[in-house]
């Protein structure tokens, strides 16, 4: 399996992803799933700047990524897939729940209405309930900002 990480991180591609996860996982491809970025070449260039040349960066809409999941799963490139929000990852899970099994909550930060659950994880009550529903459907959801930190199961998040 070449899809090694399904991460929700509202900062998208940044150092924690590229270095924190990229090195230990030996990534050679990052897939950023974001409809707005997929339609904006200028922003794509900015995100590429954060990634070493040996890692391919793919920008995809949710629809395009959903269609490509089996292909990315089957090929040999060691890949991490990122979304900036829970809903986008849930859409990918709905599209192919055999592939998107383990969802990593890597960074969702403060905004009005959200409560701090972990230092890097702020969720509204509705978002937490949405994630619990996702887990009830079969997804494994954990919070983990970097690989050296423990993965915290959704059940333990209050």
């Amino acid at each position: 399996m070449s899809l090694l990480l399904f991460r929700v991180d509202d900062r998208l591609i940044h150092g924690q992803v590229v270095l924190g996860w990229g090195r230990p996982l030996g990534l050679d491809r990052l897939v950023l799933v974001d409809d707005a970025v997929a339609a904006n070449e200028w922003e794509q260039e900015l995100y590429r700047m954060a990634v070493p040349a040996n890692i391919e960066v793919v920008f995809a809409s949710i629809a395009s990524a959903s269609a490509h999941l089996p292909e990315w799963k089957a090929d040999r490139q060691r890949t991490a897939l990122l979304t900036g929000d829970i809903e986008s990852m849930a859409a990918l899970y709905a599209a192919d729940h055999d592939t998107v099994k383990l969802i990593n909550l890597g960074g969702l930060h403060h905004r009005p209405g959200r409560t701090e659950r972990l230092p890097y994880l702020y969720l509204t009550d509705d978002e937490l309930a949405f994630l619990r529903n996702l887990a009830a459907e079969g997804a494994e959801v954990v919070a983990q900002d970097v690989p050296t930190a423990p993965a915290i199961d959704l059940e333990a998040i209050r």
Partner: peptide
Amino acid sequence: SNTGCDRGA
């Protein structure tokens, strides 16, 4: 500081 905020914030 970027601590504790998302992209928009």
